[in-house]
Amino acid sequence: MIIGMGSDLCNIDRIENSLKKYGARFENRVFTQLELAKAAKRPMTKAATLAKRFAAKEAFSKAVGTGFRNNVFMRDIGVVNLPSGAPTLALTGGAKSRLDMMIAEGYEAFIHLTLTDDLPWAQAFVIIEARQKL
């Protein structure tokens, strides 16, 4: 059953401007080391790569109904790839705690994530599904 969904649209130029203005301070406040490493491998599209991840963090915060409050921080939400290559989220800290609170006993959470970009926009959709444990 679907227990949460969220979407976000992010302007890539806004992320590019934040990277230029705040540099590592912005990067380290918002993104995980894995996300930054992936973006570093894509110097021509670094801003777009990070903008999609920024949108994913926003979409997740909407899907759990908190926004960035109640100990849900951007750095606690990281975009990772499954062995198939499909993107999903790895959660720590308050983001993981919030999701855990939403899942009934005997169920487990599955996060579905899709990302896209088309300059100047990056977009993410998150669907959180609870599946009964077998």
Rank of each mutant, 00 (worst) to 15 (best):
I2M: 11
I2D: 02
I3Q: 00
M5W: 08
G6S: 06
S7N: 14
D8W: 06
C10K: 06
N11F: 08
S18G: 01
L19W: 00
L19E: 03
L19V: 04
K20P: 04
K20Y: 09
Y22T: 12
Y22A: 14
G23C: 08
F26M: 04
N28Q: 14
N28C: 11
R29C: 13
R29N: 15
V30H: 00
F31P: 01
T32L: 02
E35C: 07
E35N: 08
E35P: 07
K38P: 01
K38V: 12
A39I: 06
A39M: 09
A40L: 11
K41E: 15
R42M: 14
P43M: 10
M44L: 13
T45N: 13
T45Y: 04
A47V: 09
T49P: 03
L50P: 02
K52Q: 15
F54S: 00
F54Q: 06
F54Y: 14
K57H: 00
A59T: 08
F60D: 00
F60I: 02
S61C: 11
S61Q: 10
K62H: 11
K62S: 12
K62G: 12
V64C: 08
F68Y: 12
N70I: 04
N70Q: 14
N70R: 13
N71E: 15
V72H: 07
F73Q: 13
M74N: 03
M74P: 05
M74G: 01
D76H: 15
I77N: 02
G78M: 05
G78F: 01
N81Y: 00
G85C: 09
P87L: 02
T88H: 01
T88G: 07
A90Y: 12
G93Y: 10
G94E: 08
A95N: 03
A95V: 01
K96T: 09
L99M: 10
L99Y: 09
L99V: 07
D100P: 01
M101E: 15
M101R: 12
M102Y: 10
I103G: 03
A104Y: 04
E105D: 13
Y107M: 09
Y107E: 10
H112K: 06
L113N: 04
T114R: 04
T114N: 09
T114V: 08
L115V: 06
T116H: 01
D117P: 09
Q123P: 02
A124G: 10
F125M: 11
F125S: 10
V126C: 10
I127W: 05
K133W: 03
